[in-house]
Design a protein around this nucleic acid. Structure first.
Lengths: 112, 112
DNA sequence: TCCTCTTGCTACAATAAACGTAGCAATACG
DNA sequence: CGTATTGCTACGTTTATTGTAGCAAGAGGA
């Protein structure tokens, strides 16, 4: 049994056992910084862990690493040696659904 | 100054002051149960607070009320007397972007 | 080699968020 | 009056996130 650091616990995605993938996905994306990370890696951007941290308002590296581990395990993000973190094919596909969300956000903020 | 119960603190959406609506939206939706709530209220469904709680795996009413307050303040959810919680026009519009996400989740789970 | 820099990643104590149980006030029945 | 349901909150415990610091490994350069 491998030793577990504080950042590599709780790998299970809530709802992943229910046979309802959407629940697992909503849970994964509903964790702090998940959506933001995918957003920051848009347009084939490759960011190092520290560049990503800067992009995410200097969020704590502890959570970021946790989210990155989860996203990598989920096959949405990958770490390319000498390059940085980037979206996988599946991750890019997921991001496609964020574009209209961006436009929606503009309209939404005006309606407040 | 009105009294504040434990469930009505922290109304500020992170990033809402940055002038980047997408950040505020990602933050709001990135809180636990936010995405799920919108999901459960899909298809013009109206759910009472307790029905919604059942739909959300009996999540704690404390968070659910907090999320509902935030989503209502954001104009995405409304409470119709004698009917229950439901998506507003804006909320329904937001949900439209979740439909492809549903199909994506199916493919995603198979790729794991 | 040694020094310096950057990388990905982790420890750890403190704070904030979420959980679970219980229950209140208001409303609507009978 | 009882009873049941509604939206919502109190509160003590557990879990997640934060912030600061730093480690080990790798890539140069001197």
């Amino acid at each position: 049994m491998p030793k577990q650091g504080s950042a590599m616990k709780k790998r299970t995605v809530r709802g992943s056992t229910s046979g309802r993938p959407i629940m697992a996905l909503l849970d994964l994306l509903g964790r702090r910084w998940s959506l933001r990370i995918v957003w920051e890696l848009r347009d084939d951007r490759a960011l190092t862990s520290r560049a990503l941290r800067s992009a995410c308002d200097e969020a704590s590296p502890t959570v970021l690493q946790a989210r990155l581990s989860e996203l990598r395990e989920a096959g949405l993000v990958e770490l390319v040696a000498g390059d940085g973190y980037r979206l996988t094919g599946l991750g890019k596909e997921l991001f496609e659904y964020f574009l209209p969300l961006h436009r929606f956000a503009e309209r939404w903020s005006k309606s407040l």
